[in-house]
Each structure stands twice: as C-alpha cells, then as structure tokens.
Design a protein around this nucleic acid. Structure first.
Lengths: 168, 168
DNA sequence: CAAAAAACGCAAGAATCTTGCGCAATATGC
DNA sequence: GCATATTGCGCAAGATTCTTGCGTTTTTTG
C-alpha cells in the first residue's frame, strides 16, 4: 500500500495516541471526520496498522527490570533451533526473541521484577531450554529510552497486502 | 496501586486489543459497563496504563530489518555517557537504548529498511555519535517473536502512583 | 457486629461513530 | 489536450457508545 502525506499524519498521530477519537484525529490532521474514518479503516484492512494496544507501566505491574540474554546453541541444526524457539516462546518473561548474526545465536529481552526474580527465571526456565549451550545475561541497569513509534515518510511502500484486523 | 483479579482481566484484554469499546471490554470481563469504565479510568490515572498506541506493520512502512548494536564507549565518565545518550536519542532509527552490564556499555535496537539502509545509518548516524569507541552490529536474521503484552498476576504492586494521562 | 467506605448496576442525556449521497480532484485513454 | 472514469472528499443523520448521577450491595474497619 502506498502512503501519502495524509496517511503519514494519521499514522504518526495514532502511533502516539492510539485511542484518539476519530473526530479528534480528523481535526488534528486537517481532514473531515468521514474521510479520516475511511482512511484509518483502509490502513487497518491493508495491514499497515497491525493493531492497537495498551502499554502498561512496567514498574506498576512488577516488571521493572529488563534483562538482555545472548543465547548460544549447542549446534545450528534445524531441529535444535526449532525446539529452542518453540520452548522459549512459552517462557512468559521473554518479550522478544531474535535470531541474530554474530558470535551468539539468539538475543532475548526479558522483563522481570528484580534481580532475585531473574535468578529464579534463569534457574527454572532459561537453563532448561532445549539445545542451549551458553547463556550470557546482560542486566539493563537503566532504560535510556524506548519507543514504539516508527518515524514515517510519505511514498514508502512495503509488501504488506493482507486483510488482517486483529486489535481493532 | 493494588490490582485485583478484575483489574488483571481488564489489563490483559487491553494489552491485546487497546481499542476495545468499553461495552465490549465490560462484557468480556463480566462486568457492567459503568463499573468497567470507572476501573479503566482509575488504572489510567494511577499510571498503571501508560497509554494507548497503534502498532504498525514494520514491512509495510519500510522498516523490515531489525539490527541490534552493542556500543562500547571510550570511557565511562558521566559527561561522555550523557553526551552519547542525548545524541543517540536523536537518531530516529534507534527504537530502544539500554545501559547494560557486561563487556559493552549500551545495547541499541534499530529498525531500518534493509542492509543497504543500515549501512547508511551506520555511516551517517551511528559512527558519528560522541564517545563511541566500538560498535558491534548484530543483524536480526529473523524475528522469532515479539510481544508488547506482559503477563499479569493479581496482588502484585509496584511504585507507580502518578497522575499521568498521556495517550488516553 | 455496626458504621463507614468502596464498588456495583441501572438508566438517560451527551458524545461519537458510521454510512449514503452528491460534488470535487485526480488519473486514464484516445 | 480533453473527455471520461476513478478516487477521494465533506455533509448530514440514524445508530452506537460513552459518561455520570443515583440508589443498592458488598467489603472494610474500628
């Protein structure tokens, strides 16, 4: 889907405030409510907007500590990797998992309560994951910043053409 | 703020579908619309809910490639770190920045179009950041999974007691 | 165990969404 | 270069949803 300047405005606003009312969104973007509504629906149906979520305060829900874990597998056979990936997704403290280039195989981002909680997760969950040869844990001493909003520019297109509609 | 089982239900639902109507949310949680509405507002005002955002399809907006960069500074003087942190936040391709334990100082997560685009960002943006001694780039060959929703359990409390109300 | 506090559901007025319609702007074909 | 098709726009009104006052029920507290 090709995005014009108005789409970029709408997406930029919704990336910051996903619960703007359609009327408010329209006004800020300088568009009528009906046109705005139709554009947003089109962006949702084209899969440009993947969904809407509430972001919680990590401290407030007892997950104030982020830990970044580098994982090295015993080998890189397809079955080994598949088994690891399936198992790691079951660990609810793991927020993201990337297969990476470099010396290690995977990078995980975990959110836990505190160091003591991480010790528990490491012992009860991570160390038992299949195929793991080595785990290197890097504690995030401080979150310098985190974003969910991607900066956009008009004219750029991708390959998404599905008809999804998850969190609308 | 102390969360009971109903709060956990509401937060769990809103973490997945942040744009549920109040009526729908209430029904799924087994609560009247008015009580539901009041609880959500309280969670927002207590800062448990930080805000609501639209999540975009990274491919569709031309940011299909994630790169994880380990940064080592020349030294760890306060001014060096401060200068780096201020500058790195200006680089719009950088989504997260953590100050970490371990051999390196910072971990960055970038979202870019492709390898060619990353080469440009590396050359024009990252290599010029103040205080940087070494950059180790790990390309995410594949996103195994990513989540924004944290699993919750009742009774847990944190330290958030502010009266924020950003993206509501 | 009684009083106080907190939370609930109902219901109605206010706000918002959603769509049909006619018009304007842009794209297409000759 | 111009006629025509296509796309997108704004208006307006019926349908939906939000939001809050109120009386009742449940939970907490002394």
């Amino acid at each position: 889907m090709r995005l014009d300047a108005m789409d970029v405005s709408l997406l930029t606003l919704l990336q910051r405030e996903g619960r703007l009312t359609n009327a408010e969104l329209a006004e800020r973007a300088g568009l009528s409510a009906s046109a705005c509504h139709r554009r947003v629906r089109a962006l949702e149906q084209a899969g440009v907007i993947d969904g809407y979520v509430a972001l919680l305060n990590a401290e407030a829900v007892g997950r104030g500590l982020t830990v970044l874990v580098l994982v090295t597998l015993e080998n890189q056979r397809r079955e080994t990797m598949q088994a690891f990936e399936t198992a790691v997704e079951q660990v609810e403290e793991v927020m993201d998992c990337y297969l990476t280039t470099g010396a290690e195989d995977y990078l995980l981002r975990l959110m836990v309560r505190d160091a003591r909680d991480y010790e528990r997760v490491h012992r009860e969950r991570l160390s038992g994951l299949p195929g793991v040869a080595r785990l290197v844990s890097n504690i995030a001493m401080r979150k310098v910043f985190t974003r969910t909003a991607m900066p956009l520019s008009a004219g750029q297109a991708g390959s998404a053409t599905r008809k999804a509609g998850s969190g609308a």
